[in-house]
């Protein structure tokens, strides 16, 4: 990481701390913001958060490792999550999965070579009456067919 990048990230994290406070109870919201913007929380970011909240970096890592939506290793620029739980499963989840794997040339859990997509399974998204459901970043899509799912990925920048 370049020094300028580091400085920018530090400033960014400081702005989150200003917004949510420097109490430990602000931790998850701060991590959430970093995750959202950078798609991961780098070691440097973890150290900065720890410094500003006055806790040990390992504490920050331990929280990140607990939550499915937080990760310390980089992922693709867009995160695709397909609901694997039974109601969506019954409505044709595996069709979506196969089509997307074929189209992107990766398996579930993988990231495309151009770093554009990471595809993962998710547990019930709370959209079971309109499955199969899929999320692309923080947007959700419902009642998908394999064709429609692939088409949606095509529209992502």
């Amino acid at each position: 990481m370049l020094v300028v990048e580091k400085n920018a990230l530090s400033e960014e994290i400081e702005s989150y701390v200003n917004k949510y406070g420097n109490d430990r109870s602000a931790l998850l919201m701060i991590l959430h913001e970093i995750q959202k913007k950078h798609r991961h929380i780098s070691e440097f970011a973890q150290q900065e958060v720890a410094r500003l909240l006055n806790i040990h970096p390992v504490e920050v890592f331990s929280v990140i490792s607990f939550f499915a939506f937080l990760n310390s290793n980089p992922k693709g620029r867009n995160l695709v999550r397909i609901c694997q739980t039974i109601s969506c499963d019954m409505k044709g989840k595996s069709g979506l999965v196969k089509a997307i794997e074929r189209e992107l040339g990766i398996e579930m859990g993988g990231t495309t070579k151009d770093n554009k997509f990471t595809v993962e399974y998710a547990n019930c998204l709370g959209l079971c009456d309109m499955g199969p459901a899929m999320a692309i970043n923080d947007q959700v899509f419902l009642q998908l067919t394999p064709e429609k799912a692939v088409e949606l990925l095509g529209k992502v920048k």
Partner: peptide, 23 residues
Amino acid sequence: FLGSGAYVCGEETALIESLEGHR
């Protein structure tokens, strides 16, 4: 407050732990 993808956080004491910035 936004959770981060953990079913168990619906359990009230786990929920409070995570509000406090813990696992």
